[in-house]
Amino acid sequence: MSLAEAISLHVQDGDTVALEGFTHLIPFAAGQEIIRQKKKDLTAIRLTPDLIYDQMIGAGCIAKLIFSWGGNPGVGSLHRLRDALSNSWPRALEIEEHTHAGMTNRYVAGASGLPFSVLRGYDGTDLLSNTENIAQIKSPFGDEVLLAVAALNPDVTIIHAQQADRKNNVMSWGILGSSKEAVFAAKKVIITVEEIVDEFKPHHNSVIFPEKLITALAVSPRGAWPSYASGYYERDNEQYIAWDEVSKERESFNQWLEAEVFSKGEK
């Protein structure tokens, strides 16, 4: 299936989507296809919104963001995210912010088919009184007070991986963040891969996503760029640094959007 078909068929306006991948294997091509197809009113989940959600926010696809760290790593702020929060441009953006441990455990609950996970977290912070979907609970086995975080079950989780085989199983290796949990938590799963191979060769820390977990698979070479795909290409740090300037003003962002997303077809 092409990426355009996968997005068109399986991402609907108003859906809750999770495009996961932690620094590594961020599904940029899929996110930009969502922009190209002008999907809207999405609730978007990611631990680190990163450039991909900054782009989708600036393009007006996202109504609500659920996240735990919203910056451009090692560079600075996400300007489109800030503009949406401060000035509702191009539309109002609602946020729900957590911690990495909280978000990870929300996926774990979703993947496990449970209503919540329990952790020791958010203690003593102002998040406790400002964030929805968390609750302090007393341990049933003692006096300790712990934190319950509600499950996340995205309508669609989208990830990028290195390889698929001829039977549509997927293999990924390197830093996976919370991708595995986001896949198991989702109602539908779209995976883009660098390439299809005849046979998987074992890799350090490799993970297999059996085809039974996958709703749609699309080949998308360099689909994680300017993030990276271990074994294929490195992170394009210059793009992350340049994004600071591109995204700073609405005009330069709109020019980028037109030139790099709307004028170009699926990569």
């Binding site: 620094t23 952790l119 830093i175 996976l176 350090h204 490195e234 992170r235």
Partner: peptide, 25 residues
């Protein structure tokens, strides 16, 4: 020096690379 928290430099030179539930929990 990695620019981001998940650079390839960190993964390639690690004893192991694990998921985030393992790191945090």
């Amino acid at each position: 020096l990695p620019l981001s928290i998940g650079d390839g430099e960190l993964a390639n030179r690690a004893l192991s690379v694990v998921g985030m539930p393992e790191i945090f929990n």
